[in-house]
Protein backbone atom coordinates (compact mmCIF):
# COMPACT_ATOMS: atom_id res chain seq x y z
CA UNK A 1 0.00 0.00 0.00
CA UNK A 2 2.19 2.75 -1.23
CA UNK A 3 -0.38 5.16 -2.54
CA UNK A 4 -2.23 7.63 -0.36
CA UNK A 5 -5.15 7.73 -2.75
CA UNK A 6 -6.20 4.23 -1.70
CA UNK A 7 -6.82 5.40 1.91
CA UNK A 8 -10.52 6.11 2.65
CA UNK A 9 -11.28 9.80 2.65
CA UNK A 10 -12.30 10.08 6.30
CA UNK A 11 -9.06 8.53 7.54
CA UNK A 12 -6.74 10.53 5.37
CA UNK A 13 -5.61 12.91 8.09
CA UNK A 14 -5.13 10.19 10.68
CA UNK A 15 -3.03 7.73 8.71
CA UNK A 16 0.62 8.00 7.77
CA UNK A 17 1.33 5.95 4.69
CA UNK A 18 4.87 4.72 4.21
CA UNK A 19 5.63 3.82 0.61
CA UNK A 20 7.04 0.38 -0.13
CA UNK A 21 10.26 1.90 -1.34
CA UNK A 22 10.83 3.69 1.96
CA UNK A 23 9.90 0.65 3.97
CA UNK A 24 12.07 -1.91 2.21
CA UNK A 25 14.92 -0.02 0.63
CA UNK A 26 16.81 0.44 3.91
CA UNK A 27 16.72 -3.36 4.13
CA UNK A 28 18.08 -3.85 0.64
CA UNK A 29 21.78 -3.63 1.56
CA UNK A 30 21.37 -6.37 4.17
CA UNK A 31 19.24 -8.44 1.82
CA UNK A 32 21.72 -8.05 -1.01
CA UNK A 33 24.66 -8.71 1.25
CA UNK A 34 23.09 -12.00 2.21
CA UNK A 35 22.24 -12.82 -1.36
CA UNK A 36 25.59 -12.09 -2.88
CA UNK A 37 27.54 -14.16 -0.38
CA UNK A 38 25.33 -17.18 -0.78
CA UNK A 39 25.35 -17.57 -4.56
CA UNK A 40 24.77 -21.11 -5.67
CA UNK A 41 26.28 -21.60 -9.11
CA UNK A 42 25.17 -24.49 -11.23
CA UNK A 43 27.85 -27.14 -11.75
CA UNK A 44 27.73 -26.85 -15.48
CA UNK A 45 30.89 -27.13 -17.55
CA UNK A 46 30.84 -27.01 -21.30
CA UNK A 47 34.42 -26.91 -22.53
CA UNK A 48 37.93 -25.75 -21.75
CA UNK A 49 36.76 -22.91 -19.51
CA UNK A 50 35.17 -25.45 -17.19
CA UNK A 51 38.66 -26.66 -16.26
CA UNK A 52 39.63 -23.14 -15.25
CA UNK A 53 36.36 -22.92 -13.35
CA UNK A 54 37.36 -26.06 -11.45
CA UNK A 55 40.77 -24.56 -10.81
CA UNK A 56 38.99 -21.53 -9.39
CA UNK A 57 37.02 -23.80 -7.09
CA UNK A 58 40.17 -25.70 -6.02
CA UNK A 59 42.60 -24.82 -3.27
CA UNK A 60 44.68 -22.05 -4.75
CA UNK A 61 41.96 -19.62 -5.82
CA UNK A 62 39.36 -20.92 -3.39
CA UNK A 63 35.93 -19.88 -4.53
CA UNK A 64 34.51 -20.47 -1.04
CA UNK A 65 36.00 -17.13 0.05
CA UNK A 66 33.07 -15.65 -1.84
CA UNK A 67 30.50 -18.02 -0.46
CA UNK A 68 29.89 -19.81 -3.73
CA UNK A 69 31.73 -23.10 -3.47
CA UNK A 70 28.49 -25.03 -3.45
CA UNK A 71 28.04 -25.99 -7.09
CA UNK A 72 24.52 -27.29 -7.44
CA UNK A 73 23.92 -30.24 -9.73
CA UNK A 74 20.34 -29.13 -10.44
CA UNK A 75 19.16 -25.90 -12.06
CA UNK A 76 16.22 -25.82 -9.65
CA UNK A 77 18.57 -25.11 -6.78
CA UNK A 78 20.92 -22.76 -8.56
CA UNK A 79 20.78 -19.03 -9.05
CA UNK A 80 23.87 -18.49 -11.14
CA UNK A 81 24.65 -20.13 -14.45
CA UNK A 82 28.26 -19.92 -15.51
CA UNK A 83 28.32 -20.69 -19.23
CA UNK A 84 31.86 -21.96 -19.30
CA UNK A 85 32.81 -22.76 -22.84
CA UNK A 86 31.72 -23.01 -26.44
CA UNK A 87 27.99 -23.37 -26.87
CA UNK A 88 27.25 -25.42 -29.95
CA UNK A 89 24.00 -25.57 -31.81
CA UNK A 90 23.46 -29.11 -30.59
CA UNK A 91 23.84 -27.99 -26.97
CA UNK A 92 21.88 -24.73 -27.22
CA UNK A 93 18.41 -26.25 -26.64
CA UNK A 94 19.65 -27.79 -23.42
CA UNK A 95 21.24 -24.55 -22.22
CA UNK A 96 17.99 -22.68 -22.81
CA UNK A 97 16.02 -25.41 -21.06
CA UNK A 98 18.33 -25.30 -18.05
CA UNK A 99 18.03 -21.53 -17.93
CA UNK A 100 14.25 -21.76 -17.98
CA UNK A 101 14.34 -24.22 -15.10
CA UNK A 102 16.29 -21.93 -12.80
CA UNK A 103 14.16 -20.01 -10.32
CA UNK A 104 14.25 -16.22 -10.11
CA UNK A 105 16.38 -14.34 -9.22
CA UNK A 106 18.86 -15.81 -11.65
CA UNK A 107 22.05 -14.58 -13.19
CA UNK A 108 24.19 -15.67 -16.12
CA UNK A 109 27.92 -15.26 -16.54
CA UNK A 110 29.34 -15.79 -20.02
CA UNK A 111 32.80 -17.11 -19.25
CA UNK A 112 35.38 -16.85 -21.99
CA UNK A 113 35.47 -15.76 -25.58
CA UNK A 114 33.30 -18.59 -26.93
CA UNK A 115 30.35 -18.02 -24.60
CA UNK A 116 30.63 -14.31 -25.23
CA UNK A 117 30.84 -14.25 -29.00
CA UNK A 118 31.82 -17.62 -30.40
CA UNK A 119 35.48 -16.87 -29.83
CA UNK A 120 38.10 -18.61 -31.95
CA UNK A 121 35.44 -21.02 -33.17
CA UNK A 122 33.00 -18.33 -34.27
CA UNK A 123 33.34 -19.16 -37.95
CA UNK A 124 32.49 -22.79 -37.24
CA UNK A 125 29.25 -24.10 -38.69
CA UNK A 126 27.85 -25.53 -35.46
CA UNK A 127 28.95 -22.81 -33.05
CA UNK A 128 26.48 -20.32 -31.60
CA UNK A 129 27.93 -16.80 -31.83
CA UNK A 130 27.58 -16.03 -28.16
CA UNK A 131 25.14 -17.43 -25.64
CA UNK A 132 23.43 -14.01 -25.47
CA UNK A 133 21.75 -14.75 -28.78
CA UNK A 134 19.35 -16.81 -26.70
CA UNK A 135 19.60 -16.05 -23.00
CA UNK A 136 20.26 -12.74 -21.20
CA UNK A 137 23.80 -12.40 -19.84
CA UNK A 138 24.78 -10.33 -16.80
CA UNK A 139 28.57 -10.45 -16.89
CA UNK A 140 30.93 -11.19 -19.77
CA UNK A 141 34.44 -12.39 -18.98
CA UNK A 142 37.00 -12.13 -21.79
CA UNK A 143 39.84 -14.59 -22.17
CA UNK A 144 40.51 -17.93 -23.82
CA UNK A 145 40.19 -19.32 -21.24
CA UNK A 146 39.98 -16.53 -18.63
CA UNK A 147 42.39 -17.05 -15.78
CA UNK A 148 40.84 -17.92 -12.43
CA UNK A 149 41.54 -14.36 -11.30
CA UNK A 150 39.47 -13.10 -14.22
CA UNK A 151 36.61 -15.37 -13.22
CA UNK A 152 36.80 -14.06 -9.66
CA UNK A 153 36.76 -10.53 -11.02
CA UNK A 154 33.64 -11.48 -12.96
CA UNK A 155 32.00 -12.64 -9.72
CA UNK A 156 32.86 -9.34 -8.06
CA UNK A 157 31.27 -7.52 -10.98
CA UNK A 158 28.16 -9.61 -10.50
CA UNK A 159 28.17 -8.74 -6.79
CA UNK A 160 28.22 -5.07 -7.76
CA UNK A 161 25.19 -5.64 -9.90
CA UNK A 162 23.41 -7.43 -7.07
CA UNK A 163 24.23 -4.58 -4.67
CA UNK A 164 22.47 -2.19 -6.99
CA UNK A 165 19.17 -4.08 -6.88
CA UNK A 166 16.30 -3.13 -4.56
CA UNK A 167 13.62 -5.27 -2.97
CA UNK A 168 10.92 -2.81 -3.95
CA UNK A 169 11.81 -2.82 -7.61
CA UNK A 170 13.13 -6.34 -8.08
CA UNK A 171 10.96 -7.91 -10.77
CA UNK A 172 10.77 -11.30 -9.08
CA UNK A 173 8.65 -9.91 -6.19
CA UNK A 174 6.16 -8.27 -8.50
CA UNK A 175 3.24 -9.97 -10.14
CA UNK A 176 5.08 -9.87 -13.43
CA UNK A 177 5.34 -13.18 -15.19
CA UNK A 178 8.59 -14.49 -16.56
CA UNK A 179 7.81 -16.17 -19.84
CA UNK A 180 10.09 -19.10 -20.63
CA UNK A 181 12.47 -18.62 -23.51
CA UNK A 182 11.33 -20.89 -26.36
CA UNK A 183 13.71 -23.80 -26.71
CA UNK A 184 15.34 -23.66 -30.17
CA UNK A 185 14.81 -26.54 -32.56
CA UNK A 186 17.43 -28.65 -34.29
CA UNK A 187 16.12 -28.69 -37.82
CA UNK A 188 18.35 -28.36 -40.89
CA UNK A 189 20.07 -25.76 -38.75
CA UNK A 190 19.42 -24.23 -35.34
CA UNK A 191 15.93 -22.75 -35.52
CA UNK A 192 15.17 -19.81 -33.26
CA UNK A 193 11.48 -20.18 -32.50
CA UNK A 194 11.13 -16.53 -31.49
CA UNK A 195 11.94 -15.53 -35.04
CA UNK A 196 9.52 -18.11 -36.42
CA UNK A 197 6.80 -16.60 -34.26
CA UNK A 198 7.58 -13.09 -35.43
CA UNK A 199 7.05 -14.00 -39.06
CA UNK A 200 3.99 -16.05 -38.22
CA UNK A 201 2.36 -12.95 -36.78
CA UNK A 202 3.20 -10.94 -39.84
CA UNK A 203 2.17 -13.37 -42.54
CA UNK A 204 -0.16 -16.21 -41.67
CA UNK A 205 0.73 -18.50 -44.58
CA UNK A 206 3.73 -20.62 -43.77
CA UNK A 207 6.24 -21.16 -46.50
CA UNK A 208 7.71 -24.48 -47.48
CA UNK A 209 10.33 -26.29 -45.43
CA UNK A 210 13.83 -26.21 -46.88
CA UNK A 211 15.02 -29.61 -47.96
CA UNK A 212 16.98 -31.49 -45.31
CA UNK A 213 20.07 -32.66 -47.13
Amino acid sequence: MSDKSQVPHELKDNVAVTPWTKLFDPLSPIYNWGRKYSMWPMGFGLACCAIEMMATAAGRYDLSRFGMELMRPSPRQADLMIVSGTVTKKMMPQVVRLYNQMPEPKYVIAMGACATSGGPFKEGYTVVSGVDKFIPVDVYIPGCPPRPEALLQGFLKLFEKIEGQKISTSPWYTKKEFPAIPVPLLGPDLIDLRKVQETRNEQPEASTVPATN
Binding site: G118, V128, S129, D189, L190, L193, V196, T199, A206, P210
Partner: peptide, 28 residues
Protein backbone atom coordinates in the same frame (compact mmCIF):
# COMPACT_ATOMS: atom_id res chain seq x y z
CA UNK B 1 31.19 -8.10 -37.75
CA UNK B 2 30.43 -11.48 -39.25
CA UNK B 3 26.72 -11.17 -38.49
CA UNK B 4 26.40 -8.11 -40.67
CA UNK B 5 28.06 -9.74 -43.62
CA UNK B 6 25.88 -12.80 -43.91
CA UNK B 7 22.52 -13.56 -45.38
CA UNK B 8 20.43 -14.25 -42.29
CA UNK B 9 22.43 -12.09 -39.85
CA UNK B 10 23.28 -15.12 -37.80
CA UNK B 11 25.43 -18.23 -37.98
CA UNK B 12 22.78 -20.27 -39.79
CA UNK B 13 22.46 -21.54 -43.33
CA UNK B 14 18.69 -21.89 -43.10
CA UNK B 15 16.59 -18.96 -42.00
CA UNK B 16 14.32 -19.32 -38.98
CA UNK B 17 11.88 -17.03 -40.68
CA UNK B 18 11.08 -19.39 -43.51
CA UNK B 19 11.05 -22.51 -41.38
CA UNK B 20 7.78 -24.36 -41.02
CA UNK B 21 7.49 -25.69 -37.49
CA UNK B 22 4.24 -27.58 -38.02
CA UNK B 23 5.50 -29.81 -40.77
CA UNK B 24 8.85 -30.45 -39.11
CA UNK B 25 9.52 -33.86 -37.59
CA UNK B 26 12.81 -34.27 -35.78
CA UNK B 27 14.37 -37.54 -36.92
CA UNK B 28 17.42 -37.56 -34.71
Amino acid sequence: PAEERVQFHDNVTVSSETFNVESFTPEA
